[in-house]
């Protein structure tokens, strides 16, 4: 049972697992601030799904030393939990991929979150007895 604070990427993996109805949060974490974080992200996911996902990359954000991925939970929630299931997934992601190649700081944030997300998924799969 996870006591220490979750990283953002781990939380994404848990919300994804919840959305796919594999797990309930309490089986994995019992720290109240972790639960709050997960529920907040789940609510954000539900709102985004109802609204539809139309996120754009702001122009010049990274030139100003303010990489837009920094603290942008919503983008990752859309990217990982919603966009991934869309048929036009590949085409929609092209501007984002280009941006990650243009902006080192966003690339760093993206790789950090996705690394945490990967290991979060590994832990969940292990608990569930293998990749689902």
């Amino acid at each position: 049972m996870r006591q220490e604070p979750l990283t953002f990427g781990e939380a994404l993996a848990l919300v994804e697992a919840k959305v796919k109805q594999k797990i309930d949060f309490q089986s994995y974490v019992n720290n109240s601030s972790n639960i709050k974080m997960l529920e907040r992200m789940l609510t954000s996911y539900q709102e985004k799904k109802e609204q539809g996902t139309t996120h754009t990359i702001p122009n010049g954000c990274c030139m100003a030393d303010k990489p837009f991925l920094q603290e942008d939970d919503a983008y990752f929630i859309s990217h990982i939990l919603i966009d991934d299931a869309l048929p036009e997934h590949d085409e929609n992601n092209k501007p984002f991929i280009k941006h990650l190649n243009d902006c080192y700081w966003c690339f760093k944030i993206y790789s950090q979150v996705l690394r945490e997300y990967y290991w979060g998924r590994q832990k969940i799969d292990k608990c569930l007895g293998g990749p689902q």
């Binding site: 990982i80 966009d83 190649n101 690394r115």
Partner: peptide, 26 residues
């Protein structure tokens, strides 16, 4: 090209394994 550059940099600079890259939503 852009996709390939991103894959290459994740591998080279961030030390992602092939499995980690393939598991990414992108």
């Amino acid at each position: 090209t852009e996709r390939d550059i991103l894959i290459f940099n994740l591998y080279l600079l961030e030390e992602f394994t092939r499995e980690m890259i393939e598991a990414q939503p992108l």
